[in-house]
Design a protein around this nucleic acid. Structure first.
Lengths: 266, 266
DNA sequence: CGGGCCATTGAAGTATGTCAAAGTTTGTGG
DNA sequence: CCACAAACTTTGACATACTTCAATGGCCCG
């Protein structure tokens, strides 16, 4: 499916190569011309521009932001690819994963407003592989240009730091979730986490569609797809949720939390 | 999953409270006067100054860096405390944890050169509680001053970004570790991770002393202290390691990896 | 309409959690 | 410096939740 593969495997030290407008992007066919200013975007209230005033926005709008569409299953970048862009999700859902000899470990899910690629700041190459779970559109921010914009705006610097901090906290919470001893607590926590994410993005926290397979959830939570399925069925039997394939309805979110998440911490 | 909803709820917007030299530090009795320049520190090759040239060092040395000593069991900061400082470990080991109704979840261990507190960038208060596992010394970096230094030095900005990226990657790897289905793989992976950390800091990767209890390890790895103990005993029986209380000798690190970590990924 | 992928469910074996007790180390106060 | 107490570690026995293997059924896409 994906033929393009520029895996380096070697860490590229900072400073990063300067962005050069004459150089084509990695996958030129799928990158479109820059659009309207960042803060007019539908997800700007979740994304980089959040909280920035006019002058800071100007700094941001100096950046040549490309857009890229992804179909389900397409990869945005792979572990080891040279870091040139941060990506912001405009719509759709992606998963970030570590490839393994037999399979993969799913380390994160990303939705509208999320920034992907911060992990590459450590050594200049992406630490994870990002795959679209459905049709997605992302903004490609050339990191070298972002650095220039950051040189001009302290508010932008702080916003970037804030986003990285938020992602770190999210990762702490994922680890905490996965470290639960009872699988039920992990699956229940996962549903509640998703519900919160949906709400933050203006969707119903009560009814939503899982964009990832049971296997992805299992990998994320450190269990098997069968156990995930059984947990969902069990929650449904107890009346906490309704499940139909990937459609989830949280009938009693607080009951779910009380019965499994809080309780499970022994 | 998350009992303290304020932690992950609506983010408190930056800008953060400005550093004011007239304001006393949180625990003034234990903060000492600034010392020699940052790059003369014994762990500078691991810490903030790494890779900075003279002019960037100057920017860094404008910061009033306090030192603080911690005894075993003392807390550096608590979840929810107002964020004013990043802390760099000079020596000793700390754990970062989430308090829970009955106990805690250990989310990270920090050693010399590590920066603690990045998680507070998300909303202006610390997401975790940090406790010393032994006698420690840390540098307290007033964040507002660090921001000013960052305004003056793009290299420093990139170094901070690099450190945050590195911590994010580390967290991804922890999640991956904890998501292993077999506990043996988690404990083995933990030992190998520790070994690498020791080596990076100039200690023997083969023999080292665990600074944390079996309970801490269990919490970190999402299992029980008994299981951790049993795993260690099992590794010792198979000749991969030698254990005497908290003293660990990795007799056959690669054998350990082959037998449990790589193998365990089904 | 058919084929492939995904989800559900069952049965059986096993790893791990839980409870309990003994042994060891560490720290404290006399 | 010793003695005691507290905290930590190890080990065992048992119950159970989870993984594994397997088969069936549903959904979606071509």
């Amino acid at each position: 499916m994906e033929t393009h593969s520029t895996r380096t495997g070697v860490a590229v030290p900072l400073p990063l190569p300067r962005w050069n407008p004459g150089v084509r992007l990695l996958r030129p066919a799928r990158v479109e011309a820059p659009r309207a200013p960042c803060h007019t975007c539908g997800v700007s209230h979740l994304c980089l521009p959040k909280g920035l005033d006019d002058s800071d926005r100007d700094a941001l709008d100096q950046i040549t932001i490309g857009r890229r569409r992804l179909r389900k299953g397409q990869k945005l970048y792979r572990q080891g690819d040279t870091f040139l862009f941060l990506y912001a999700v405009r719509f759709g859902t992606c998963k970030a994963s570590f490839p393994l000899p037999n399979g993969e470990h799913v380390s994160a899910f990303h939705m509208a407003g999320d920034i992907m690629g911060f992990d590459a700041l450590a050594d200049g190459s992406y630490a994870t592989t990002v795959t679209a779970l459905e049709s997605c559109e992302v903004c490609a921010l050339p990191y070298a240009q972002l650095l220039e914009a950051c040189a001009a705006s302290s508010a932008l610097r702080q916003r970037v730091a804030q986003l990285m901090g938020a992602q770190l906290v999210r990762e702490y919470l994922v680890t905490k979730l996965v470290a639960h001893r009872h699988t039920e607590a992990r699956v229940a926590g996962f549903l509640l986490q998703l519900s919160k994410w949906m709400q933050e993005r203006g969707y119903s926290p009560r009814e939503f569609r899982l964009r990832m397979s049971r296997a992805d959830i299992g990998s994320y939570l450190g269990t098997t797809l069968e156990t995930v399925s059984r947990c969902l069925s069990q929650f449904a039997r107890h009346g906490h949720i309704r499940v139909h394939n990937r459609e989830i309805e949280l009938v009693d979110a607080e009951g779910l939390r009380a019965a499994y998440v809080d309780e499970g911490r022994a």
